[in-house]
Computed example of a mutant assay.
Amino acid sequence: MPSSVIKRSEYDPERQVLTIWFLPSGRAYDYRDVPPKVYDRLRQATSKGRFFNAHIRDHYPFTQRDTVTG
């Protein structure tokens, strides 16, 4: 289901890094130490923004990427 907040997400299971691009800015953030089951639940969430706020934001360390892509 599309999101009004999240433009795109990618997950690297080996590194357990979840990258999320946000709307409308296009800014990307890498969230570290995210278990695969959390990424699966994000993908299945009816409201990805609500899931992100409740289960990822403020729960995992992150860094902002230097470039805006996506």
Rank of each mutant, 00 (worst) to 15 (best):
V68P: 04
R32T: 05
D30Y: 10
F52R: 04
S47M: 05
R41L: 04
R57N: 09
R32C: 08
I56H: 01
F62W: 03
K48S: 10
S3H: 03
H59E: 06
R57I: 04
R50M: 08
E10V: 11
P35V: 11
P36V: 08
S9N: 10
R50K: 14
Y29Q: 14
R57H: 08
R32L: 12
R57V: 04
D33Y: 03
H55E: 13
D12C: 12
T67N: 14
P61F: 09
P35Q: 13
Y60S: 04
L42G: 02
R43P: 02
R8Q: 12
F52K: 05
E14C: 11
Y31M: 03
H55S: 11
P35N: 06
I20L: 06
L18R: 06
Y60P: 03
R27H: 13
D30L: 10
Q16S: 12
Y11V: 03
K7A: 15
A54F: 02
Q64R: 11
T19R: 04
R65T: 02
R43C: 09
Q64I: 05
F52E: 02
I6S: 04
A28Y: 00
V34N: 00
A54S: 14
Q44T: 02
S47K: 04
T67R: 15
T63M: 08
G26C: 10
F62P: 00
Y11R: 01
D12Y: 11
R15C: 11
T69R: 14
E14M: 13
P2F: 00
W21G: 10
G26M: 10
R8Y: 03
K37A: 10
Y60I: 01
F62Y: 02
W21K: 15
K37F: 14
P61Y: 10
Q64G: 01
G26F: 07
Y60D: 01
D40F: 08
T63F: 05
F52T: 02
I56L: 01
S25T: 15
Q64V: 02
M1R: 11
V5S: 11
F22E: 06
D66K: 15
P2H: 07
V38K: 07
V38H: 03
L42C: 00
E14I: 12
P2D: 05
A45Y: 08
R8M: 08
G49E: 08
T46Q: 12
D66P: 04
R8W: 02
A28H: 00
R57C: 08
G70I: 01
P61H: 09
D12V: 07
L18H: 03
H59G: 03
H59K: 15
T19C: 06
T46M: 07
P36Y: 05
F52C: 06
E14Y: 07
S47N: 11
K37I: 13
Q44S: 06
S47T: 05
